[in-house]
Design a protein around this nucleic acid. Structure first.
Lengths: 203, 203
DNA sequence: GTATTTTTCCTAACAGCGTTAGCAAAGGTA
DNA sequence: TACCTTTGCTAACGCTGTTAGGAAAAATAC
């Protein structure tokens, strides 16, 4: 009775072709322009067939979300295995993470909810410069005080990026408990730790 | 001839009420659920009137984007002015930035293009743990080697957040030139700088 | 081999979206 | 009062996610 097997196989084929077509569309037009109708068109089935395989559009994107984290995990593991000393491994992890993000922008944006339709590029916001300026002048003075000649903008961006990273990851995950703290408290501890190290780097 | 003045005043009133209603809707239902029709409903005008004041929906959200950065800048300035020593100022900046983000989530999400419709909360992605695990084990070993008793997870999150911050800010701004580098090169320099400091913090 | 049931898949619709064309009414001017 | 300009509406276009209901095809039973 290979009929049910064949049916299951065919079902899987359709499901796979949905994902393949969807991913192609995402790479061609960005995930914000993905639509069920376009997918249906690409797989040469009618729209409701898509809903036989995925509960809704979000379920399809969720699939890619998971694949993205899987892929990132694999890349990190590969990078780590190329070295034996832990400090070199950590360095390799950082670069592997970086490369993954830029070589798979669509994945990365999906994974972290980035790049929404109305998000303008930062450089087109004049108010940005005023706010960065406050940070800049503070760091400038600290560097001057200690005679440190490191590039100011490098430190400014480092300061900004780190806090933004902490904030945005915290904004995404609902408060869980870690060491008896909420996420928010935990990340504020990280912020403290970061500040200590950062200030030391300015001496 | 106060007629034109009155008309201009009334025009401004409508424009303001569009922004006020829009912001209220954003706070009630999130910016992803904002629609021109809802705004029109709230201001008790028909839909095309909205388009007499804003070219499109993006222009409305762009307004909030700018307001957000303006507000953040003001908060930072206030925080800074409460202290005189530059190191305390920098610390205050960090906490002010943090507080702004969490007290004005809608602004922050808008400003950085965060929280798109399909972005699931991180904790619901099992693959995440595998990828974090790779980082965890590496840092664990580094701490063990040097006998450092700092909490591992604190360092893991710090590592992750920092790189994510750098990546996501870089993904947003198109490559510009700073010190003869592209954004990407520049931020990779920051990454290097960060790694140096981070490794030192594990010793 | 025909009848029945199940599965597969489509058409058509609903309710919403951003956006715009075109017209009616109101307001201001001569 | 007659004209013109501004204002603001209705109604539509083309798109979106999603679903109800029925037709055709395939598998099963007799």
């Amino acid at each position: 009775m290979g009929i049910t097997e064949r049916k299951e196989r065919q079902r899987k084929e359709v499901r796979d072709s949905i994902l393949t077509s969807a991913w192609q569309l995402v790479n061609e037009e960005g995930w914000q322009n993905l639509s069920i109708r376009k997918i249906a068109d690409a797989i040469e089935y009618s729209v409701p067939v898509v809903y036989d395989h995925f509960e809704n559009k979000e379920a399809i994107l969720s699939e890619f979300n998971h694949r993205g984290f899987k892929l990132l995990g694999d890349r990190l593991k590969e990078a780590k295995e190329k070295h034996h000393k832990a400090n070199l491994q950590l360095e390799a992890l950082a670069y592997a993470y970086w490369d993954f993000a830029f070589e798979n922008k669509e994945y990365y944006q999906l994974m972290y909810g980035l790049g929404m339709p109305t998000c303008e590029s930062l450089s087109s916001v004049p108010e940005l410069m005023a706010f960065i300026g406050v940070i800049h002048s503070t760091i400038e003075e600290l560097l001057k005080e200690s005679g440190n000649t490191t590039d100011i903008w490098l430190k400014v961006h480092s300061f900004w990026s780190t806090i933004h990273g902490l904030v945005s990851i915290n904004l995404m995950s609902p408060p869980t408990n870690h060491m008896g703290m909420t996420n928010n408290e935990f990340n504020k501890t990280i912020l403290k730790d970061f500040l200590k190290g950062f200030l030391k780097g300015l001496e």
